[in-house]
Design a protein around this nucleic acid. Structure first.
Lengths: 192, 192
DNA sequence: GTCTATAAACTGATAGAC
DNA sequence: GTCTATCAGTTTATAGAC
C-alpha cells in the first residue's frame, strides 16, 4: 500500500489550502488561478501543473471535505449526543470564525447550476453524507432519551442541517444570528 | 409627484426580469451583460444604456425585492397566522418551482464578500426586513394562541428563516428536502 | 516543478454613428 | 435607444525552456 495523501506533496496541499479559503469566502466562480498563485508566490502555470483544470482543483477540494467529514464522524461516534451536538455547532462556528466562511455545502448549493458535472456529483455526495449524519445524531439522541422532539429523526435531522447552513450564511449580515440558531435548535431538541 | 416605477420603461423591466432569473439560478458573479443581452435579443451596449454599471443592475434588483417584500407583508398582514405561514412556505416554494432558484437572501449571503458596497448595503437591509417579518409571524402566532414553541419569538423567527433558506438551497440536491423542512417547522410551531 | 510567453475567449465598459 | 466598433483587463489553459 502506497501512502497517497495530499500531505505527500507540500505545494499541492498549500494550493488546496489557499483555494479552500477562497472557495468558502468568495465562491468557486469568484476566484481564479491568479488569486491562488499570487498568494502562494508562484506563477499561474505552476498551479496548472498540479491541477491541470480548475475542475480538478474543485473536485479535489470536495473529496478532501468528504474524507475530513468521514474522520470527524468516526472520531465522535461514541460521544454522548449532547457532546455530539456541541461538536456539530463548533464545526459550523469554526467556519464563521475564519473570515466568516460558510459551510462548503451552502456555497456549493448556491453555485450548483454553474458547476461542472464532476463537481456536482462530489457535492451531492458530500451533502448527502452531511444530511445522513445529522439524521443519525437526531435518532441516537432520541433513542438514548436525551433529545425530545416531535416528528421523525429524519425530519429533525434535515431541519437542523438546513437551519445551521442558513444561519451560517445569514451570520455574515448579523453577527449574533448563528448563536441564535444554535440556541433555538438546542431548545427544540428538548434537551434537559 | 412623477410616476417613476420600473414599469414605465419596458426594456428596463425586461432586463431586470432576465437578470433576476440569472441571479437566482447562477449568482451575480456567474452571469454577464452578454447573457442578458443575447436573451433579450439586443447588443450588450444597450444594457449599459439602462444600467451603466453592473452594480446599478444589482442594486436595482435588490431594491425591487424590497418593494415586493413590503407589498407582500402588507397584503397578508391581516391573515390568521396559519395562513401567513402557508404564504411564507409558498413564497419559498415558488422559487424552487422556477428552475430551482434560491431565495435572493441566500444567494446574496454566499456572494456577500464579492459584492460591491452599494449591493451589500441593500442586501443587508433586505435580509433584515425578511428576518423582522419572520419574527413578527412567530410572535403574532403565539400571541393569538395558534403557535406553541419554546424560546422567544425572535429565536423562533430567526430559526424559521434560516431553515427555509438552507432548505431551499439543499433542495437543489434532493427534491424532497424543502417539503421536509416545511413539515418540521409546522410541527415545531406546535400547530393544532 | 517552476518559469516565460502566449493563446483564445470572455469581462465590464465607452465613444460615437444612426 | 440601439447600433458598430473597440478598449483594457481578466479568465482558463498550453508550449516549451530551464
Amino acid at each position: 500500500m502506497k501512502i497517497d495523501t495530499d500531505a505527500k506533496n507540500d505545494t499541492r496541499k498549500r494550493i488546496m489550502d489557499i483555494a479552500e479559503e477562497l472557495l468558502l469566502t468568495r465562491g468557486f466562480n469568484a476566484f481564479s488561478y491568479q488569486w491562488v498563485s499570487s498568494e502562494l508566490g508562484v506563477r499561474n502555470a505552476a498551479i496548472h501543473y498540479h491541477f491541470p483544470h480548475k475542475t480538478d482543483l474543485g473536485v479535489a477540494l470536495i473529496e478532501r471535505y468528504r474524507r475530513r467529514l468521514s474522520r470527524f464522524i468516526e472520531a465522535q461516534a461514541a460521544l454522548p449526543p449532547r457532546e455530539q451536538l456541541e461538536r456539530y455547532f463548533e464545526l459550523a462556528h469554526s467556519y464563521f470564525r475564519q473570515d466568516r466562511q460558510v459551510c462548503p455545502s451552502g456555497m456549493l448549493c448556491t453555485e450548483f447550476h454553474t458547476l461542472p458535472d464532476a463537481m456536482r456529483d462530489q457535492a451531492a455526495a458530500f451533502i448527502g453524507e452531511m444530511r445522513d449524519w445529522s439524521i443519525d445524531l437526531a435518532a441516537r439522541g432520541r433513542d438514548l432519551g436525551v433529545f425530545h422532539y416531535p416528528g421523525s429523526a429524519e425530519e429533525m435531522g434535515v431541519l437542523m442541517f438546513s437551519a445551521l447552513q442558513g444561519g451560517l450564511q445569514l451570520a455574515r449580515v448579523d453577527d449574533g444570528w448563528l448563536d441564535t440558531v444554535k440556541r433555538q435548535i438546542t431548545r427544540l431538541l428538548g434537551v434537559e
